[in-house]
Amino acid sequence: MDLPKDMVAASATPLILAILNNADSYGYDIIAQVKGLSDGEMQWADGMLYPIMHRLEKKELITSYWGQSETGRKRKYYQITSIGQESLISLTNNWRKLNDMLQNLVGENNV
């Protein structure tokens, strides 16, 4: 199943915030987690992720800091802020409401 681009775009912010709500992370790891969570159906590229990360930072939903990887290389890590956690709760509730609406319209057995 190929997910439409508009669905991938709409889900990017809540997915990133949820990943960062579990633990601080860096770009490549976020991309890998999304790929794993979607069983390979969502394959983000750097060019898609980093503009979103910059937008989330500008909105103060996440912050970034430089840290060292296991190999000693410098790496930019991201972490969710308290504003980001509040936004994640709101976004999650909105997705649940939408899912409930769809289930009520088509039923679980018809999809």
Results as ranks from 00 to 15, higher is better:
residue 81 T to N: 00
residue 110 N to S: 14
residue 109 N to T: 04
residue 77 Y to F: 15
residue 72 G to I: 07
residue 26 Y to N: 05
residue 89 I to P: 00
residue 92 T to W: 00
residue 110 N to T: 12
residue 34 V to Y: 01
residue 69 S to R: 08
residue 55 R to F: 08
residue 10 A to T: 03
residue 24 D to P: 07
residue 91 L to C: 09
residue 46 D to R: 13
residue 86 E to L: 11
residue 49 L to H: 04
residue 27 G to H: 03
residue 12 A to V: 02
residue 77 Y to Q: 01
residue 75 R to K: 14
residue 6 D to W: 12
residue 69 S to E: 10
residue 82 S to A: 14
residue 40 G to L: 11
residue 56 L to K: 00
residue 110 N to C: 07
residue 73 R to K: 13
residue 90 S to H: 04
residue 33 Q to A: 13
residue 70 E to K: 12
residue 93 N to Y: 03
residue 105 L to R: 10
residue 58 K to A: 14
residue 20 L to S: 04
residue 108 E to S: 09
residue 94 N to A: 15
residue 1 M to R: 09
residue 101 M to D: 15
residue 87 S to Y: 01
residue 23 A to W: 00
residue 78 Y to R: 05
residue 3 L to G: 05
residue 50 Y to K: 08
residue 23 A to K: 08
residue 99 N to D: 10
residue 72 G to V: 06
residue 66 W to H: 04
residue 35 K to I: 04
residue 90 S to L: 09
residue 22 N to D: 11
residue 53 M to H: 01
residue 69 S to W: 01
residue 54 H to S: 15
residue 50 Y to S: 14
residue 49 L to R: 02
residue 95 W to I: 15
residue 15 L to F: 01
residue 54 H to R: 13
residue 54 H to K: 09
residue 54 H to C: 03
residue 40 G to D: 05
residue 47 G to E: 04
residue 104 N to M: 06
residue 65 Y to A: 10
residue 31 I to H: 00
residue 93 N to L: 15
residue 99 N to I: 15
residue 77 Y to H: 05
residue 16 I to G: 06
residue 41 E to A: 15
residue 71 T to N: 10
residue 67 G to T: 10
residue 67 G to N: 04
residue 16 I to N: 02
residue 50 Y to V: 10
residue 1 M to C: 07
residue 9 A to N: 04
residue 82 S to D: 10
residue 79 Q to G: 11
residue 87 S to R: 15
residue 95 W to M: 15
residue 6 D to I: 13
residue 89 I to C: 03
residue 37 L to M: 09
